[in-house]
Write a protein that binds this DNA or RNA. Structure first.
Lengths: 222, 222
DNA sequence: CCAAAAGTGTTTGCTCTACACCCATGG
DNA sequence: CCATGGGTGTAGAGCAAACACTTTTGG
């Protein structure tokens, strides 16, 4: 009546690095799939919620506090044979972190590395499937919610923002239309600061906290 | 390292009945929450996939074969204290079934009944939360996918379809605009049959199988 | 012929898209 | 003064919303 089933959480951690959409993977140092790359994850403790388990894994791998970044449940994968050790279902989460952070390997990982989502290795378990699903969901959400801002630091220019969208969506966007849309959506405000570099300095913006819930009835970027 | 966690699936089964959006609930005949209404569900067997478990529960409660109707994973609920008996996480699914079917009570249920989503009792566990989430998702999906057809029988009139949308969305729609949209989306075809009743007979339509994947880039019903 | 429900078009405003030049700064 | 990236507006097309009458059948 109550079969022995283990429960893990796995967390797909996306960031923008090197003009690329990257994901944090760890190299497994124990069987099964020793030496293969995998999504970070681990067992759910008896007294912690699933979300807390995901945030704990995120912190262990990146040092990022889960409540400071976007984190959401993705899907639960539970095919009987997905783990050769026995019945293990995994609740997959995905997180968006802003900066290219230093990473540290967890207990069960020999090393951790950011990898481009466009050049993924063959991974342990069903992790390629999980990652494909996460990527699909990320692109999808980008089109009708303001979640993309979570990939950027607190202050950013409109060009930064546009570049972020272009990297994730894998297509180029019209500058004037992009800016008009973002402004109309009223999800950002000027910080007052500017950033100097070669060329005209860029006004810096921040994401408006009160706009998080403001997911539009119409998609922002059709 | 591998805490004792039980895994269940719960399934929110929606249908249209009596001009109302209804959900199938069962009355618990054992503690905890004896006598309370609950969403049908049960333990996941050691060798079955989560989806199969959900389809099995659906069949046990309604006699409907899971592969004949729309069924999808909703969310996984895993707060440590959600079940007083111990740590139980539940993978919630939702299903859309076409007809007001006869229902039969499963092992752990004294009776099963269709209940209006607009007059829900206080339920066992966190089932009110699950149901609210399912309803939100249903309305949301209705707006940008063709999933609403799954609530109707094979043959239906355009008035039937419009009525279905109105019931679920809780608002009235313009007849001409509704029909034009549906026709443009090319998701239905005439069966050739008509249905007679008081008034002019209605042409009957069926949902086009090849249109299932055809979720629009633009929402169908903004 | 009357009641009841099915079916059908047009106009108007808005939103999306495509597109090219000037501006501010540092070197 | 030149190179570099930041910043701005408009015209045309396609889409969505509002709106009322005619058609077909059964009784």
């Amino acid at each position: 009546m109550r079969p022995e089933i283990s429960v893990t959480v796995d967390i797909v951690i996306f960031t923008l690095r090197e003009g690329d959409l990257q994901v944090l993977l760890v190299k497994r140092k124990n069987p099964p799939f020793e030496g293969r790359w995998a999504i970070p994850g681990g067992y759910v403790e008896a007294d912690e919620s699933l979300e807390n388990a995901a945030m704990r894994e995120l912190f262990e791998e990146t040092g990022v506090q889960g409540d400071a970044v976007h984190i959401e449940q993705l899907y639960t994968f539970g095919e009987p044979k997905r783990d050769p050790r026995g019945r293990v279902i995994t609740v997959a989460y995905f997180a968006l972190v802003p900066a290219p952070l230093a990473v540290q390997a967890g207990d069960d990982a020999a090393e951790a590395q950011w990898k481009s989502v466009y050049h993924l290795p063959v991974m342990a378990f069903d992790h390629n499937q999980i990652l494909n699903y996460a990527l699909k969901r990320l692109r999808y959400k980008l089109e009708y919610s303001a979640v993309g801002f979570q990939l950027l630091p607190n202050e950013f220019s409109l060009s930064d923002l546009q570049q972020a969208y272009e990297i994730v969506l894998g297509e180029t966007l019209d500058k004037r239309n992009f800016r008009r849309r973002i402004q109309q959506a009223k999800v950002i405000e000027e910080t007052g600061a500017v950033r100097a570099h070669e060329g005209r300095p860029a006004k810096l913006y921040r994401f408006r906290d009160d706009a998080v819930a403001e997911v539009k009835a119409r998609r922002l970027f059709p």
